[in-house]
């Protein structure tokens, strides 16, 4: 653990299950650290547990999902540690949105269609800043809209009067309303057109530089993460299978799944090549997975993959770069 003071969120051995006849183990022993001001990308396919992870670290899991283990520690700017999973009642309410906020997958639907944008900002401030006057609330809402590049006069608009991109900007402005230290973004640009997606990403990057918050950015689109993340985690079947600095991942991805994902994006300007994805489907997360969860789809599978679970190991590349694959050392696999 290098530079502890820099870490704003540390997640240790987090596991989440969905109850059922055979429980679905959606997040399996995930650990990571989020540094102050950093953008951590989490890439994965549908059903890999990435959204469940986001909900778990935001304390928003609802039954049948339940935490089965692990810790989530938040370290504030003045060094106070909070165990997120122990927060209850008022303390939890106070923590949410003040310290850590979330931008949801379908921001188009995250806004209330029957009240104006201004009213929705008002709700946040009434709940979290009860001493503010109406005038101050209105002024701050205007500032926030201005911050994300929307005309402050739009506070009077209703969500249906805004385009998809504008709605997404409004939702980002709301997430930033109380100046949180962490913003968790779950597929914030998936429903948007490429051009608008690009504008939103640029906006997020600019705001992050300006305000210095940290972001956990979750998406299925690895190519997008390569461009905006500082570090990047690739998730498969509920686990982190690779954890790497974003720069350099393209040329030196260590896990065959990461390599496969990278291959799945044809380069716009690159030479024409044979294009193939990753054949097969992810494993059923209700099953016990004794070996490597990716073994059935892996083109470099060998003997130990079927019965030994690979641990996430440091690759000694000096940057905390790690991968969970037997190709990179068997010794740590036996646990």
């Amino acid at each position: 653990m290098s530079g502890d003071a820099d870490v704003v969120l540390s997640v240790e051995h987090l596991s989440v299950e969905y109850a059922g006849e055979r429980p679905t183990r959606a997040v399996r022993d995930v650990s990571f650290e989020l540094r102050r001001g950093e953008l951590l990308g989490v890439a994965g396919e549908s059903g890999c547990g990435k959204s469940t992870l986001a909900y778990a670290i935001s304390r928003m899991l609802k039954p049948p999902a339940r935490l089965t283990g692990g810790r989530v520690l938040h370290r504030s700017r003045d060094g106070v540690e909070t165990d997120l999973l122990a927060l209850e009642g008022e303390a939890l309410r106070e923590f949410r949105w003040n310290r850590q906020s979330m931008v949801f997958q379908s921001a188009m639907n995250a806004l209330n269609p029957v009240t104006s944008v201004g009213r929705q900002f008002d709700d946040i401030f009434r709940a979290h800043r009860p001493d503010w006057t109406a005038e101050r609330r209105r002024q701050r809402a205007g500032e926030l809209l201005d911050l994300v590049g929307i005309d402050p006069a739009r506070v009077r608009s209703f969500p249906h009067e805004l385009s998809g991109g504008m709605r997404q900007r409004v939702v980002i402005a709301m997430a930033l309303a109380l100046e949180p230290e962490i913003v968790i973004m779950d597929e914030p640009t998936t429903a948007l057109d490429v051009v608008v997606q690009r504008e939103i990403l640029d906006e997020v990057e600019r705001l992050r530089e300006q305000l210095g918050f940290s972001v956990v950015f979750i998406t299925h689109d690895l190519s997008l993460l390569l461009e905006i993340s500082d570090r990047l985690a690739v998730m498969y079947a509920g686990e982190f299978v690779e954890y790497a600095p974003a720069e350099g991942l393209v040329s030196a991805a260590a896990h065959p799944y990461t390599q496969g994902l990278l291959r799945s994006f044809p380069d716009l300007a690159g030479a024409r090549r044979e294009l193939r994805g990753i054949p097969g489907t992810p494993p059923d997360l209700r099953e016990q997975l004794p070996g490597c969860p990716f073994a059935a789809r892996c083109d470099q599978v060998f003997a130990p993959c079927s019965d030994q679970h690979p641990a996430l190991l440091d690759l000694d590349r000096g940057t905390g770069w790690s991968a969970a694959c037997h190709l990179h050392g068997l010794q740590g696999a036996i646990r």
């Binding site: 490429v194 640029d202 461009e227 990278l262």
Partner: peptide, 28 residues
């Protein structure tokens, strides 16, 4: 051209991406 520029480019380094982003923000 706008569509092509907006597509994520896997080849660029972070520094190149950052410069490109600054240019786009200025232009906008």
């Amino acid at each position: 051209r706008l569509l092509a520029e907006s597509a994520p480019s896997t080849g660029a380094t972070r520094e190149q991406a950052r410069t490109a982003r600054r240019e786009r923000l200025d232009q906008r």
